[in-house]
Design a protein around this nucleic acid. Structure first.
Lengths: 197, 197
DNA sequence: ATCCATTTCTGAACATCGTTCTAAAATATT
DNA sequence: AATATTTTAGAACGATGTTCAGAAATGGAT
C-alpha cells in the first residue's frame, strides 16, 4: 500500500558514502556538495537528505570508513621489534593520510559540530594510541607510555596537518615521511635519555 | 572632475581588516562573509571588492597583522637561558594562537590558493624558526639546529592545530600548554641523548 | 475496475554565499 | 548648464545547504 522503494537503503547509503569519498578526494570539503553528491550517487538531493539528514552526517560516515581502513592497514603491518615497528607505523600513517588528503581535511577541518563524538570515533583513536603506546612501553617500562604515545601522535599529526593542506613547505623542505621519521627518532632518543638518567 | 572619495583608502582598508579579525574570532572562517564585513566596516560589499579584489585578500591582510603581532609578542619575551626561554616561547605561542582560534583557522584552513606565498609570509615563518633554532644551537652545537627547530615547531603546531578546532580532547586530556611543554621537553631530552652518545 | 491511503521520491523554492557590474551620486571642467 | 570622470551602492547571477509540496507508484477496499 505504498510506492515501492526505488533504492535499497543500505545500497544507497553505501553508494552515497562512496561518492562522497570520491568528491572529497577530488576537491576536498568544498567539493562535497549536495548536488554533486546526488549526481555522483544517482539519487536526488531530497533522497539523500531523507537518508542522512544532512551533509555532515555523510561526512561522518566517510570518516567511519576511513577509521576502519586505517585500522586494517595497521593490523597488516609486518611484525617487527619495537623501534622499527614504530618507524614503520609513523610512515605508514603518513602515507595513508596523504593518499587521502581530502578525507583528512574532512576529518580535521570545519567547526566542531557535536559536543560528544560518536563512541566508535573515540574507540578508533584510542586503539591507535594504544598501538603507539605498546612499543613505547616495551622500550621504556618506567615511562608513562600512554602519555608519550599521545605526544608522538600529536607530533606526527603536525606533520600531516601541514602536508595535507599543502603548507608543509612553508616550514621545512623535508618530506612528510622524513619529518615523521624525525619525530619518532626524537621521541626514542628522549626515552633513552630518560632511562639513562 | 570626479565624485570625491567617501573613505580614505587606508582608513577603509584598516577598518575592513579590523572588522575581518572580529568576524573571524566570532565564528571562524565561515563568518567572514562579504555582507557581514560590509556591515561591520561601514562600507558596502562593492566598495570592499574595489579595494581588496576578493575576500581571500582580506584574509591575507589579517594574517599579515597576525604575524606582526606574533613577532612583537616574541620580542617582548623576557630574556632567559636557552632551556627556560624555549619553554616560555612554546607556551607563549600556544597562548597567542589559542587566543586567536578564528585567526588561526584563517591561516591554516582552506585550499592553498597561491603557489608562492608572499615573501613577508615566508620571512615571518623563517624568523620564528630562527628564534627557535637559536637556543637549540646554544644547547647542542653539534646538532643541526635549523632542522631540530623545524621539528619542534611542527610538534607544537600539532598541539595547536588540534586545540584550535576543539579536537585536542579526542587525543589527550592534557591542556595545550602541558602538551607543548612536553614537546619541548622531549626535544631537549633528545638533544641531551645525542650529545651523550 | 476504480478509488484511495500510504509511502517514496523528485525537484522547485528559500535564504545565503562570493562576486560582478550597472547605474546612481557627486564633483571639476568646459 | 552640460558633460566628463571617478566613486559608491546595491541589484543581479550562479552557486550553496536544506526544506517541502506534490508527483509517482503501489496494495487494499469497494
Amino acid at each position: 500500500m505504498a510506492r515501492p522503494r526505488q533504492y535499497d537503503p543500505e545500497t544507497l547509503r553505501a553508494a552515497v558514502v562512496s561518492a562522497a569519498r570520491g568528491l572529497l578526494e577530488e576537491g576536498g570539503p568544498p567539493a562535497l556538495t549536495a548536488r554533486a553528491l546526488a549526481q555522483a550517487s544517482g539519487a536526488t538531493s531530497g533522497t539523500i537528505y531523507a537518508s542522512f539528514g544532512d551533509l555532515h552526517s555523510v561526512l561522518i560516515e566517510v570518516n567511519r570508513d576511513t577509521f576502519r581502513e586505517l585500522g586494517e592497514m595497521i593490523d597488516a603491518l609486518p611484525d617487527a621489534p619495537p623501534e622499527p615497528w614504530l618507524y614503520a607505523l609513523a610512515e605508514a600513517y603518513v602515507d595513508f593520510m596523504l593518499e587521502r588528503k581530502g578525507v583528512w581535511r574532512g576529518l580535521f577541518e570545519g567547526d566542531r559540530v557535536t559536543d560528544v563524538f560518536p563512541q566508535w570515533y573515540m574507540a578508533a583513536i584510542n586503539a591507535l594510541l594504544a598501538k603507539i603506546a605498546h612499543p613505547i612501553a616495551a622500550l621504556a617500562p618506567s615511562e608513562n607510555a600512554a602519555e608519550r604515545a599521545e605526544e608522538l601522535f600529536i607530533s606526527v599529526h603536525g606533520v600531516v596537518a601541514l602536508a595535507a593542506i599543502g603548507r608543509l613547505d612553508m616550514v621545512s623542505p623535508r618530506s612528510p615521511k622524513a619529518l615523521a621519521h624525525a619525530a619518532v627518532n626524537t621521541m626514542l632518543s628522549a626515552l633513552k635519555e630518560a632511562s639513562d638518567a
